[in-house]
Amino acid sequence: MPPAPTPTAYARYAPWRRWVEIGFWVMNIAVSAIGNSITVRMEMARAGLVFHPAEPVVWEWSSALTFLALVPALVWFTRRFPLDRERWRRHLVLYAAASVVFSLGHVLGMVGLRELAYAWGGGDYDFGPWGRQFLYEYVKDVRTFVSMVAVIAAYRFGLRRLQGEASLLDAPDDDSPPVEPVERPERFLVRKLGREFLIAAEDIEALHAAGNYVNLRVRGREYPLRSTITAIEGRLDPARFRRVHRSHIVNLDHIGSIEPLDTGDARVHLKDGTVVPCSRRYRTALSS
């Protein structure tokens, strides 16, 4: 058995990725809430206003917790409608609308938490005229919305740089013939940390869809390719690659075994130990 490949920086980071991402948002929003609570209390005391010491804490933490609850929806939205070079103009209108929905969700959640906190303390929270107050909150929220979108986009860009991003080899700009078939490429170009190298199509063990990308699995490493699973399936050699699931394609040369399931589905075990789901729709074609 050949020795296992040396883990890349991305492979070492992957097991911690979810906890790092959750920790970042929790820590960032918590620090902001604590800092804002202190500064609001100091400003109100300096202005000579009468207030309960807990009020600034309730205001800032109700806002912060609502922002935190909105993070998963914002992550999904930015993945579903990315601001990439090809589609940013078309998606810009969607982002403008999303900022309004984001602010509305923030205001409703924030006011709801404040009303609960005031009621628990025996008081009553008055948000004020909704039209004017929402406009005031939206002006602040849109800056937070843009900042969070920018952070998410920068983080994903860094991940792709660390992980390596694949692309199809394009036809030459002049009239000279391409070095290989463009419609069914034999190699893929991978850019990783400022370097470029080629991977042979036959070395791809499996592919799986992930949002707007298809991850190419090569020697235990994955490289995202901006494409749909259906589009890339049409450019692979059908004698070597076979669709086994709506989100998965496998290289027949890398299949170790197929495990039938009682449901009619199956599990495809690759030679490196990776398990890929196989739906009953594709199981018969896989065995042929």
Results as ranks from 00 to 15, higher is better:
Arg90Pro: 01
Met27Thr: 13
Phe157Asn: 07
Leu159Ala: 08
Val151Arg: 04
Pro82Glu: 06
Phe81Arg: 00
Ala54Glu: 09
Phe157Thr: 08
Glu137Ile: 11
Asp124Asn: 08
Glu137Ala: 14
Leu65Ser: 05
Pro53Thr: 03
Val151Leu: 14
Ala154Glu: 02
Leu74Tyr: 01
Asp141Met: 12
Val111His: 00
Arg90Gln: 14
Ala69Leu: 15
Val31Arg: 02
Tyr125Phe: 15
Gly35Arg: 06
Ser62Ala: 15
Glu43Asn: 08
Ser63Ala: 13
Gly123Trp: 11
Leu70Pro: 06
Glu55Ile: 06
Ile152Met: 10
Val71Ala: 06
Val100Tyr: 10
Val75Leu: 15
Val57Cys: 10
Asp124Met: 07
Ala153Met: 13
Tyr138Met: 08
Ser37Asp: 01
Trp88Val: 03
Leu162Arg: 02
Val31Cys: 10
Phe77Gly: 00
Val107Ala: 07
Ser62Met: 10
Arg156Ala: 04
Tyr125Leu: 08
Val20Met: 02
Phe51Pro: 03
Leu49Cys: 05
Arg85His: 13
His91Val: 03
Trp61Leu: 11
Leu49Val: 02
Arg80Glu: 11
Arg156Asn: 12
Phe51Ala: 04
Glu115Ala: 01
Gln133Pro: 02
Arg41Val: 00
Ile22Asn: 09
Leu83Ala: 08
Arg90Met: 10
Gly131Leu: 14
Arg160Cys: 07
Met42Lys: 11
Leu70Met: 15
Val75Ile: 15
Gln133Lys: 15
Val58Asn: 09
Ala33Ser: 06
Gly109Ile: 05
Ala153Lys: 12
Gly105Ser: 05
Ile29Leu: 15
Pro53Lys: 09
Ala47Cys: 02
Phe127Glu: 08
Leu83Trp: 00
Tyr155Lys: 08
Val31Met: 11
Tyr138Lys: 08
Trp61Val: 05
Asp84Ala: 01
Arg41Trp: 10
Val40Phe: 14
Ala54Gln: 11
Phe51Gly: 03
Trp61Ile: 03
Phe127Thr: 05
Tyr95Cys: 00
Leu83Met: 13
His91Thr: 02
Phe67Leu: 15
Val101Arg: 08
Met42Thr: 02
Leu65Glu: 02
